[in-house]
Design a protein around this nucleic acid. Sequence first.
DNA 1: TTGTAAGCGTTATCAT
DNA 2: ATGATAACGCTTACAA
Lengths: 343, 343
Amino acid sequence: MAITIKDVAKLAKVAPSTVSRVIANSPRISEDTKTRVRDAMDELKYHPNFIARSLASQSTKVIGLVLPHSSGVFFQNPFFSEVIQGLSEGVHDNHYALQMTSGKTEFDSYEGVVQMVQGGRVDGIILLYSMIDDKIMEYLTKRKFPFVVIGKPYDLVDKITHVDNDNYMAAKEATDYIIGLGHHKIGFIGGSPSLTVTLDRLNGYKEALRASDIDINEDYIIHGDFLREGGQEAVKALLRRTIPPTALLVTDDLMAVGVVNTLTEMQIEIPTEVSIVSFNNALFAEMSRPPLTSIDINIKELGYQAASNLIQLLKNENDPVKRIIIPHTLVIRQSCDVAPDVE
Amino acid sequence: MAITIKDVAKLAKVAPSTVSRVIANSPRISEDTKTRVRDAMDELKYHPNFIARSLASQSTKVIGLVLPHSSGVFFQNPFFSEVIQGLSEGVHDNHYALQMTSGKTEFDSYEGVVQMVQGGRVDGIILLYSMIDDKIMEYLTKRKFPFVVIGKPYDLVDKITHVDNDNYMAAKEATDYIIGLGHHKIGFIGGSPSLTVTLDRLNGYKEALRASDIDINEDYIIHGDFLREGGQEAVKALLRRTIPPTALLVTDDLMAVGVVNTLTEMQIEIPTEVSIVSFNNALFAEMSRPPLTSIDINIKELGYQAASNLIQLLKNENDPVKRIIIPHTLVIRQSCDVAPDVE
DNA sequence: TTGTAAGCGTTATCAT
DNA sequence: ATGATAACGCTTACAA
């Protein structure tokens, strides 16, 4: 059996409660006994038992992570590694631990969350996605369990602390950039329309067109998976239009890579025949031939802020609801050119 | 306060211990009371408190994950996402949870592990790397704490359960393949020489040369980070040799991408002037221009097996030490050609 | 087959 | 400033 607080107490000739106070560095303990107790702890190589502490204090110092249920897709996207990196740093800096839940189906995920929450495994939760009509978000809200979402909640935006980019503006800027190059037949290839990030970017795209008096052509708007395959299928569909677009706004680099692959196979030249702007600025964007102009959304920071804000919320019972916007930047590379039909 | 076992007991008119037994599905409880208790649980929407259970049973059903300390590098490599995916499925299938520890420095990581172990936070640990003279591995071994490593332990190979590829054979096969194309000036670009995976692959490479009576030229062997930058620097160094190699064995796709970038910039043609075989077969290998011939090591399975074997080890006190080898396959693409100096 | 009661290792509330 | 002692919610001998 491991060394417990009692062993330390015995060695230091104090009560267990005193040892506990020393651990918490209570000001009501004399410096004298503090050092005596600390010496005993060192001598015995004492390490507090987190489980016992959690039970007594009703707090685990663990943050739960909820991945989207179709995590197979999610794992393949570099977005995953990058948020995790930010999250990991964020919790670590605050002396919390990170625990993951996946789940093949939505029900599966839901059960995982309930276990974490009702099982008292975690003090707070971070949702790594935001979609419409999400049962998990509904559950957490109803239970008033502390959580923050990465992305924009579909409902109750002003009731739920979240960390997001201004995806509307980002898409608008990207589209404006394309329009500035003379394009007016601009396609939109987005992820699942049940994700709020897709909706925001779609709206930004539409607004940019509207502001420039370009008709919105619903045939130019396609949704797919945040995967290469998603991009491949989408661009094929767009090329079947009677008048195919001369530029594409693609909401994810991995999809954009699929788009590039397909266009290259069809011997359609980028950027002379088709221009592309994508999102996320993963390594893929840089590696692509040609390198992709992409919007950097600072994924790591998204994770870091989510973690630190959740923890702050945990410490401060009545922390106000917050909306943290992480800045984005358009990184111009070589996937855009002036419109071929402009003279 | 949440619903506890006592509330259920009261409603079902049984003792708390009976409820506990029903949860554990003990055979010594009559079907009759079982259903009565279960009805009560449903009615109250009871969920067992994991923390309390952990404290009482001295087992948390949580697996700890230890990333390499320079996790910044690690996170960027697609290896990370893929193992995590496998691990995640593995623990999930066995009703365990996954908890992560990172740490900027080695000391940092070490402290994290000690906290997990002595703090009773986890039942077992998975090391996501294997390097020589690793304090953490030494600590876990000394403490006889259950753990498995992904990769091959440097010491005590037959005392530590691990999941690995046969990296020696994989490298040998890859090198043989290159030799078969007529190359005999073959460079080796590897990751850190303190990682056992690097050593194994290096040995396989050397053995292949030896078997074909090709001199081993230490000038052809370079080590770098498992990153694009690592590959870039390494290949530049190799090209400065008086007689530069005509083929390269690169132990990681991401490094290989760096190699390809650099060669392309220098207008050296792949595969006509330089052939390349890389490892891991990440999406990068396929995306590269030209697409890379790469050894698929089945990363996801590495993770899945690590998780399930650790859990089995936890269940079966005296499970034998195991060495699980995940098969690899050489995926031939377009980065290799016959040696330019062969007629 | 079921109940009683003693832990598990802390924290926290009273006393002193 | 410190010590007893009762939680925290569960598991598990030991009884019955």
